[in-house]
Design a binder for these strands. Structure first.
Length: 921
RNA sequence: GGGUGCUUAGCUCAGCUGGGAGAGCGUCGCCCUUACAAGGCGAAUGUCGGGGGUUCAAGUCCCUCAGCACCCACCA
């Protein structure tokens, strides 16, 4: 093995091997385990959120695969209607064309071409992450099969009246020229104005003042509303006012909706351009007057003077005209919530159009029930509340989009506009007895992307065909996703799954947090704080990083700032950490229910951890390859030392902790347990303790075998334990180590996940090791604090040692000599010389100070220790003299406290007498 | 307006069903010791956001206040 860990030398070739050998396909004989990947946009490339999410899923999947479960991680991508169409349109624009120049057919061809050309980016990147997805089953939401599922669902829902078409006020993106759903609208507070406008009373008795944030919509007003109880305006109700600039007369109505406290207490009502006003209009049977064209210009319903003007140009003109007519009372600054499309970031308009809707309430009922009764469990469970809150207030879902890229709505119209919903035109004709010569044209619209996503858990498995895969893997085991798409996706999958499969789509929903930068800022292009997971894996130099962060900025003025920040944070660019280090970092940060702040320091730390593991393996191999590791030996030919039994015991506890952590979705705890065991126990202690055994000529063959077998055996198990989180390095090392441990197999991927064996837990060995460690740590502390070079041999004298202590000192002498550098260990003979002291239980280990240790320094050290001990002891004693504690606390707690106090008393006595001796010198 | 989460060492965070405050990074010493300087050994650092309550015992449970973040919602 190379002296230094180099992730690049090992990672990608293992992935190719695994994929080629078909190791990602379901093979286990145990229970089915299935995760559906949240299909990334086919246009997309991997970002930190994906990398985090995929690490979690891959760890779970690899864990279950190793456990022997029949494990499927379903691969696939999403056609991402609007997002993809926008990308391709942008390319066309660059060529000076629009999609209309091409026409629908050719445009769609163009999108497919583009998908074929660059649609593989994200799946390549997923492979780079080591994601063990079953690529042989890869699906795309616009595949034939999945499209058939979409049609089937649409038709069936329509038959049941759960899909309907109707004219409604919807959110309209005037740039994309399509409707979008409520969820695709982002509301943010922006600063604007509140215009107070005067509407003259028809009776000539002055005017009423209405306040609005959108003066241009006055052209569509069909009433003015006041609160029915509002004394100020009571006499106005039922009268009319003259709508300025239009020559129209509109009524004053009374409605509870009006808040008398706000503005003037008079509200202009524009039923065709405001959701509230629409509702008011319905109640009062007001006419709907649409004044906008689809791209938000004033249409023919507006006065001649304003026609063709963009909404904002119209606003200016109208305000100016009102002003000049003395009809503008005042303009106040005002903060308001502005709705913008999540793709275009343009202000969306409530707009009256014909659209298709899913009747959500009936579907939501069952979807609520399955979470209530625990058939679906959210992890962490507080997300269930969020889910319920939305589901209980769910509105109908607008599913039609006026774009071209997507699933065409399976509905046909005859010349009279009568609609026929069917799986195909032929079926539409057959089912309705339409003659072949009757012209039918298919609905131009496509479905919301999330409509097909909602079917993902069963459409990918072959539905509506009753496939074996459906039978095996549905319901799937767990869905791993971010909270941001609980409504978009999770809720809709649950509704559709329950409806069409008669069962939940998954048993658990693991909701992870958002990946933020090191300081908790959201990562965004405009902030210039984006990290690309691939750059963390492969490294990137400063120049290329700057180029990436500053090119294509929406706000070029940010460039200098971003550049400065980047130079400061990454003066040398980003080193290549490798996939395993990145994955382990994500795992270690994966606490549930909380956003994670991604700190590069953590990656570096875990890269070092990989290096540590690598070097530990090198040590093990150097000492075992070509040697007798006792794998074939009988029990009597193997002798296990206390250290051997100790590390085996610790391994069992670690295995137990890791499995429990993974089962409860606490990858952070699993990572921590692996890290601590590997570094603090296996490397820091066990490998060190193995050295004197292996290098001592007097070690017996049985002892050598026992040590080698333990070295190799623990490492081999550790590799399997860590594999779900660090697949590459563990595979690379395992290939070398496994044969030495008597294991065989093509890959670590399919080896059994370590199962703790209770009989290997050895409290006796753990206690003896505690003694050894206390001895060594005590001497080391003296060295450290007295600035004695680590290599300098020290004489150690034992005082107040029991027979047990003396026996241990003898038995463990090689370890103590090696790790504490104490070539001579002997009981005190007669008067003890002036010494520094370390306590091992009741025994005092004395290090003679002669020529080495300064008296004052040792006194200071003792005083510090004494101070700490006295404080602790005081607290413990206070507890024990408290009758309430002794009577009410559980017996074992009291007992533990007693033992602790006794131990502290003894230590205190020991140290005090030692201090006395030294002080007296 | 409704809801959720967070506040623990300089920084980023663990702390599970209440019983001796932890990790990583950073900092400070001593070491290139024959797996690893991407390392070894040792050290320092916290009125666990404030206040109140329950309890023998509270970082942990309850109430309250403050600050931060996010989600949902039609106030013109």
């Amino acid at each position: 093995m190379d002296k230094t860990y180099d992730p690049h030398a090992i990672e990608q070739r293992w992935y190719e091997t695994w994929e080629k050998q078909g190791h990602f396909a379901p093979a286990g004989t145990g229970p089915a385990y299935c995760i559906m990947i949240p299909p990334p946009n086919v246009t997309g490339s991997l970002h930190m959120g994906h990398a985090f999410q995929d690490t979690i899923m891959d760890a779970l999947v690899r864990y279950h695969r190793m456990k022997g479960d029949k494990t499927l991680w379903q691969a696939g991508t999403d056609h991402a209607g609007i997002a993809t169409q926008m990308v391709v349109e942008r390319m066309l624009n660059a060529e000076g064309k629009t999609r209309h120049d091409l026409g629908r057919e050719r445009f769609i061809e163009r999108v497919w071409e583009w998908k074929a050309h660059s649609g593989g980016t994200i799946t390549r990147q997923l492979r780079h992450m080591g994601a063990s997805l079953d690529w042989s089953r890869e699906r795309f939401t616009m595949d034939e099969g999945l499209s058939a599922a979409v049609q089937e669902v649409f038709v069936r829902l329509h038959e049941e009246g759960l899909i309907y078409r109707g004219q409604r006020l919807v959110n309209w993106d005037p740039v994309l020229l399509t409707a979008v759903s409520d969820l695709e609208v982002e509301n943010h507070e922006e600063t604007g104005h509140l215009w107070h406008m005067r509407y003259p009373r028809s009776d000539g008795k002055g005017h009423v003042v209405v306040a609005t944030t959108r003066p241009e919509t006055m052209l569509g007003d069909t009433a003015v509303a006041v609160h029915p109880e509002d004394e100020r305006y009571r006499e106005l109700i039922g009268q009319t006012v003259e709508l300025p600039l239009t020559g129209r007369t509109i009524p004053v109505i009374a409605d509870d909706y009006v808040d008398p406290e706000f503005g003037t207490g008079c509200v202009k009502i524009t039923p065709a351009h405001d959701f509230n006003d629409y509702a008011v209009g319905q109640r009062h049977e007001l006419p709907l007057l649409n004044i906008f064209t689809p791209d938000a210009r004033i249409n023919e319903n507006g006065p001649e003077a304003y026609r063709g003007l963009d909404r904002y140009a119209a606003r200016e003109r109208i305000v100016a005209d009102l002003e000049s007519q003395g009809l503008l009372e005042k303009i106040d600054p005002h903060k308001l919530m502005v709705p913008r499309g999540d793709r275009t970031h343009q202000v969306v308009e409530p707009y009256l159009t014909d659209q298709w809707f899913v009747r959500a309430k009936p579907l939501a009922e069952e979807a609520i029930k399955v979470v209530e009764d625990g058939r679906i469990r959210f992890v962490p469970d507080n997300w269930a509340k969020t889910y319920f809150q939305w589901m209980h207030n769910i509105e109908d879902w607008c599913i039609s989009r006026q774009i071209w890229w997507g699933h065409r709505i399976p509905a046909w119209y005859d010349e009279e506009g009568k609609v026929y919903v069917a799986r195909s035109e032929a079926e539409a004709r057959a089912a309705n007895g339409l003659p072949a010569d009757l012209a039918l044209r298919q609905d131009e619209d496509v479905l919301d992307t999330w409509f097909s996503s909602a079917l993902w858990p069963f459409s990918t498995l072959g539905w509506p065909e009753p496939t074996a895969e459906l039978k095996t893997f549905y319901p799937t085991s767990v869905l791993v996703t971010g909270f941001d798409i609980i409504f978009f996706w999770v809720a809709r999958m649950i509704m559709m799954g329950c409806k069409f499969m008669g069962d939940v789509p998954f048993h658990e929903v693991y909701i992870h947090g958002l990946v933020r930068d090191a300081h908790g800022q959201k990562m965004s292009k405009s902030k210039g704080n984006i990290l690309d997971p691939l750059d963390l894996i492969n490294g990137i130099d400063l120049e290329r990083l700057l180029e990436k962060r500053t090119s294509g900025l929406m706000q070029p003025q940010m460039k200098a700032r971003i550049e400065k920040l980047t130079r400061k944070e990454f003066p040398d660019g980003i080193p290549a950490f490798g996939t395993d280090a990145l994955r382990f970092t994500f795992a270690a940060l994966a606490t549930t229910g909380r956003d994670i702040n991604f700190d590069l320091g953590r990656v570096e730390g875990y890269r070092n951890f990989c290096n540590k593991l690598w070097n530990a393996a090198r040590y093990v191999l150097m000492n075992t390859e070509g040697q007798d590791c006792g794998t074939g030996a009988d029990a009597e030919e193997l002798e296990f030392s206390v250290a051997d039994r100790w590390i085996a015991s610790r391994l069992q506890r670690t295995e137990q902790a890791v499995a429990a952590a993974i089962e409860s979705y606490r990858l952070d705890l699993a990572a921590q347990a692996i890290y601590e065991f590997t570094w603090n126990e296996y490397c820091d202690w066990y490998l060190e303790l193995s050295k004197p055994v292996l290098s001592d000529d007097s070690s017996t063959a049985a002892q050598l075998r026992g040590t080698r077998r333990t070295l190799v055996g623990v490492l081999e198990a550790l590799l399997r334990l860590a594999h779900p989180m660090m697949p590459f390095i563990t595979e690379e090392i395992w290939q070398r180590v496994a044969p030495l441990a008597g294991k065989s197999g093509q890959t670590i991927m399919l080896q059994p996940f370590p199962r703790p064996q209770a009989e290997k837990i050895d409290p006796g060995a753990e206690a003896e090791m505690r003694w050894v460690m206390d001895f060594i740590l005590g001497v080391r502390r003296i060295r450290g604090e007295m600035n004695i070079a680590p290599g300098r041999p020290l004489e150690a004298l034992l005082e107040n040692a029991s027979a047990d202590d003396l026996e241990r000192a003898r038995r463990f002498e090689p370890w103590l000599r090696f790790l504490a550098r104490t070539p001579s260990i002997a009981p005190v003979n007669g008067e003890a010389p002036e010494s520094a002291i370390a306590l091992v239980g009741e025994m005092r280990v004395l290090i003679p100070m002669a020529g080495l240790i300064d008296k004052q320094a040792e006194l200071a050290r003792l005083d510090k220790e004494l101070g700490r001990l006295r404080k602790e002891l005081e607290r413990g004693e206070a507890k024990l003299t408290n009758a309430n504690f002794v009577e009410r606390a559980p017996a074992d707690v009291v007992e533990k406290e007693r033992a602790r106090v006794a131990e502290m008393r003894s230590s205190l006595g020991n140290l005090e007498s030692q201090r006395g001796k030294i002080a007296a010198l």
